[in-house]
Design a protein around this nucleic acid. Structure first.
Length: 412
RNA sequence: GCGAUCGUAGCUCAGCUGGUUAGAGCAUCGGUUUGUGGUACCGAGGGUCGGGGGUUCAAGUCCCCUCGAUCGCCCCA
C-alpha cells in the first residue's frame, strides 16, 4: 500500500471516466447556448456569510457540511457547497442587476463534508442554471425546458422523470407549514426518530422521508393545494401549462419539497431509479427571497443544479480518443526526421502520436494499443526515397506513400 | 453523525473448516535470430496479505482497535 492517499470523497479519473464528465459539460454548454444562457464564472470560495445567510443556518449543509476556514487575514472563507448563493452575490456586488433579467449558466466543483457513497462525493461537480430578475412563470418553464433538453442531448431523458410541485408564495408556505406541524405534532408517536427531529428543524422534509412509518403518516397529511392562495395557484397553473406546451413530460409530486430555505413556488426534481439512493439528477426551484437575504433588493429568481457525476454514470460511454496515425521511426536518423513529420501532421490537424520505445514489434504494438488507425513506418530505406510505409492497422494493408503527400493519404 | 458488507501483486480476483518458501488472469518488461502489430509460445520483475494489538505450537484465515472502500440511513445535486 502506498503512503499517499487521496482526500476522502475526491476522485482522480483517467480516460473514459474523465471523458464522461467532459461529455456532460460539453452537452450542457451546447444546450445553454441554444437557450440563450450566458456563461458565468464565479469563485470557488466565498465569504462564509454568503452561504450561511442564504442556505439557512439550521440546514445540515451550513451547520455541519461546509468546508470553512479562516484565511491568513482572519476572514471566514467557505468552499462553495452549491452555486446559487455565489451567483447571487456576484449579481449584487458586480452590478449585474443592470442586465436583468439574466439567464446564467455555470459549472464546476462544489464541496460538502458528507459520507461518500454512490453518486455522492465530497468534491463533486455541478451544472448550474439560473434566471435572475424574472418573476414570470415563463422563466420557470424555460428552465425546465433547458433541463429536459439537456437530458435528451445526453440520451437519458427516457430514464428520468420530472417531478413538479409548488411550495406556494410566502403566505401559502407559512400556512401550510403551520398546518403540517400541527398534524405531525398530533402524530408524533407514529413518526420515526429522524422525523421527530425534523419536526423541529425542517418539518417539510418529513414529507419525503423514506421511512415506512413516516410514509404512512404522510398519507393523510395536509397538502399544499389546500393552502394555495389564488395567486400561487395561478402561478403554478401557468407553469404547468407552459411545460405542457413546451412538450416536457412531468408528473405532480405533492410531497416534493426543497431542503434549502430559500425556495418558493415551483419546486422540481428530475429523478431516476437507475442510480440507487442518489436518484436526483437535476433539482431546483424558485427562490424569490434569496437576493434579499444577501441584502439586495427584492429579486425574483429560478434555478437548478445538476449532479455531473450522476449524469456521467447514466450516459453511454463516449468514444475513446485515439490518434489517427502513430509514427514509427527506425533508427536515429529516422527519429530526427520523424519529429519533423509528426509536427507537420499535427499542424494539419491530424491527431498524431510517435512510438519511440522498443523495437519495431513493440512500437507497432503500442500504436495498436493506442487505437491508432494508421502506423507510419519510417526507416532509412524509405527516407532515402522520400517515402514512408503507411500501414492500415485495421486491415493490415501497407503501402508506400510519398512524404509530401502524407496528410492527404491519411485524411482520405 | 448512524448501520451493514468488505480490504490479498499496478488492475480483477482465488486461497476449503488456522498448518511447510501466498497463487491465477490481465497489465508491465524481456525473449521466440536482429524492419511489422492486433491472434501464439517461453520467461522475468512485482505482495511485510490496509495498519496496530491479541489468541495459538502455528493466522491472509479467529478476536479487538484503527484507517480506508462500498452500499444504505441522514442530508442533498
Amino acid at each position: 500500500m502506498t503512503s499517499v492517499q487521496p482526500v476522502r470523497g475526491t476522485q482522480s479519473l483517467l480516460g473514459e471516466e474523465a471523458d464522461r464528465l467532459a461529455a456532460i459539460a460539453t452537452a450542457f454548454d451546447r444546450v445553454r447556448r441554444i437557450f440563450g444562457f450566458k456563461r458565468v464564472e464565479v469563485p470557488t470560495i466565498e465569504q462564509t456569510s454568503v452561504f450561511a445567510r442564504t442556505i439557512g443556518e439550521t440546514t445540515d449543509v451550513v451547520s455541519k457540511e461546509m468546508y470553512s476556514f479562516e484565511d491568513r487575514g482572519g476572514e471566514s472563507i467557505t468552499l462553495r457547497p452549491e452555486f446559487t448563493a455565489g451567483i447571487c452575490r456576484a449579481y449584487l456586488s458586480e452590478g449585474w442587476q443592470q442586465y436583468a433579467p439574466l439567464k446564467l449558466a455555470a459549472h464546476g466543483s462544489a464541496f460538502r463534508y458528507e459520507r461518500p457513497q454512490k453518486g455522492r462525493f465530497r468534491e463533486f461537480r455541478q451544472l448550474d442554471a439560473e434566471i435572475i430578475g424574472a418573476a414570470e412563470p415563463q422563466a420557470d418553464v424555460e428552465l425546465l425546458g433547458l433541463g429536459y433538453q439537456l437530458l435528451r442531448e445526453l440520451g437519458i431523458a427516457d430514464g428520468v422523470t420530472l417531478e413538479l410541485n409548488t411550495l406556494g408564495d410566502p403566505e401559502t408556505r407559512d400556512n401550510w407549514r403551520r398546518a403540517l406541524v400541527d398534524y405531525f405534532q398530533a402524530h408524533r408517536g407514529e413518526l420515526s426518530d429522524d422525523s421527530n427531529s425534523r419536526l423541529e428543524r425542517n418539518p417539510l422534509r418529513i414529507l419525503d422521508s423514506k421511512d415506512h412509518r413516516d410514509k404512512a403518516v404522510c398519507e393523510n397529511a395536509p397538502t399544499v393545494d389546500d393552502y394555495l392562495t389564488a395567486e400561487a395557484a395561478d402561478f403554478f397553473r401557468a407553469v404547468t401549462a407552459g411545460v405542457d406546451a413546451a412538450g416536457v413530460p412531468w408528473k405532480r409530486n405533492p410531497r416534493l419539497v426543497r431542503g434549502l430555505d430559500y425556495y418558493r413556488h415551483t419546486a422540481f426534481e428530475f429523478v431516476t431509479d437507475r442510480l440507487g439512493a442518489q436518484g436526483t439528477v437535476i433539482a431546483g426551484g424558485r427562490y424569490d427571497g434569496l437576493v434579499e437575504a444577501l441584502g439586495g433588493p427584492h429579486t425574483p429568481a429560478v434555478g437548478w443544479a445538476a449532479g455531473v457525476e450522476r449524469l456521467a454514470m447514466m450516459i453511454e460511454a463516449p468514444a475513446p480518443e485515439a490518434p489517427s496515425v502513430a509514427v514509427v521511426p527506425l533508427g536515429e536518423r529516422a527519429e530526427a526526421e520523424a519529429q519533423k513529420i509528426v509536427a507537420g501532421l499535427r499542424r494539419e490537424g491530424i491527431a498524431t502520436d510517435m512510438a519511440y520505445r522498443g523495437n519495431l514489434k513493440k512500437r507497432l504494438s503500442r500504436a495498436n494499443a493506442a487505437g491508432a488507425a494508421y502506423a507510419l513506418i519510417i526507416g532509412d530505406d524509405e527516407l532515402d526515397r522520400g517515402e514512408a510505409q503507411l500501414k492500415d492497422l485495421a486491415s493490415g494493408e501497407q503501402r508506400s506513400v510519398s512524404l509530401d503527400l502524407l496528410s492527404e493519404a491519411i485524411k482520405q
